[in-house]
Design a protein around this nucleic acid. Structure first.
Lengths: 251, 251
DNA sequence: CGACCGCTTGATCATAATCAAATTTTGTGG
DNA sequence: CCACAAAATTTGATTATGATCAAGCGGTCG
């Protein structure tokens, strides 16, 4: 574990020096965030309601559990974690959000955010005021349907996590998370086998219902099997098939 | 455990002999299913798209994982369980659905049901074709918002289950389920302390990420503590405060 | 430099799984 | 309604997985 792994982290969103105006039409992430048959004029309408605020620093909150719900958010760059605080004060990480992904939808039901969102590194997000989005949705059937789909997808993914927590061993859980991050990287045209984990071991364990020690041991084990190369947060998957086998997932 | 507990099960939906036509306006469950500021005319419009099919027998499927997604469903009477089948063929129960509750929303994202739904007893459901609902939503802002809320609520509840599975002991999980069923009964004006579990121990264990044996032992333990009276599927909560203490939940 | 933080590794322990078997309940057919 | 088979539930004994406790390492920041 002495050699350093260097990642070719190629960021999707690079704020430029010249006053270039980011918008949904030119956003490289739109295929993830808006995989939609909207014409340019419609996208402009959507673009009008989207607010691009200043980046969040590492550790900063985007919103906190209990805050008034106003908007949902799309990640432009960086990573965030969402978490709930349990009655007895412990934390439960409910998800990690990468560029192109949307968070905050759990706030709709009670007009208050049901979880907190905190930046794991410097991150930029698009804020989408929910009232405006609702109104626009009523006028644009495609957009309405897309938003229903996004929420449904969140439900489906939460159910996969429920299954993972309920049925799978520590090794399977960690392997599944690695595969998830890998495929989300691939979707953004980044390396599927070579990346930097934006979250700590504590967060990983918390998300997967494991202790830090167990997560660390799983990494060590996979490294000893030559399936993974781990250097702190840098991960290189040496044998993705091997990871799938450990994850116990159909190919 | 020799004495039998008799439950005062008062069913909300009783199909009558005379040709009485059920509709959303006269449905006792509408306060749960449609807690909405819709005027009578609007409800009639919604009522027009709702289909009331013949009851499902115990064990019958409402839909299966992979089926084309056409509709979401509201439970009128009885209970259903939703479950996914894992890659290696095991089953994961993702939820139980009582009268007034809505299921099937996880099918929107891929136009195919992401889970299966099976009736745990004779059950009646209202079928709500999703296309019609979408179109109507675009015209009725309240309805659109309500449906967004329903999906958001599903997300919030799934996250509570994630937390339960990730952080809580066997006793805490079982106690939490009992409290959930209790409060859902109370919402329907049924007894919060005295009810019949519609699902098997296997289903309970599966849902909570525990084996049957563990579920059974937890019940026995709580019974020995005089917190619960268990007679097969009949449950009487003798000390609801005690159940909350075991669930480790804020009062 | 030194304190702290995040991560790793080792030893021991506890909870729930597994294996096994008895017992109760349910469903079916006569 | 009873008898019997099958299914569901309970209980006990043993085991295994991951938690907990403890300690050490390496990097970073004030």
């Amino acid at each position: 574990m002495t050699e350093r792994i260097t990642t070719a982290t190629q960021e999707e969103f690079t704020p430029c020096a010249h006053d270039y105006k980011a918008n949904c039409n030119n956003c490289r992430l739109s295929t993830i965030c808006l995989p939609l048959a909207l014409d340019s004029a419609d996208i402009d309408q959507l673009d009008n309601i989207v607010q691009r605020n200043k980046p969040l620093q590492k550790g900063q909150h985007l919103y906190r559990e209990g805050d008034d719900f106003q908007s949902v958010y799309a990640v432009r760059s960086g990573t965030l974690k969402a978490y709930k605080t349990t009655d007895d004060g412990r934390e439960q990480v409910t998800g990690f959000y990468f560029p192109g992904e949307i968070l905050g939808m759990d706030g709709i039901s009670n007009n208050a955010h049901a979880s907190s969102a905190r930046s794991l590194e410097t991150s930029a997000v698009c804020e989408i005021p929910f009232n405006s989005l609702s109104k626009l949705s009523a006028l644009m059937p495609n957009l309405q349907h897309h938003f229903f789909q996004l929420m449904s997808q969140r439900i489906t993914e939460d159910q996969m996590l429920i299954t993972l927590l309920s049925k799978n061993s520590a090794d399977e859980r960690v392997a599944a998370l690695l595969l998830s991050i890998s495929s989300r990287n691939a979707r953004r045209k980044l390396s599927a086998t070579h990346f930097r984990l934006p979250m700590s071991r504590v967060d990983i364990g918390n998300y997967l219902g494991l202790t830090v020690e167990t997560v660390s041991r799983v990494f060590s084990r996979m490294q000893k099997m030559d399936i993974l190369r781990v250097d702190n947060k840098e991960i290189e998957i040496l044998d993705i098939h091997g990871v799938r086998v450990i994850a116990n997932i159909a190919e």
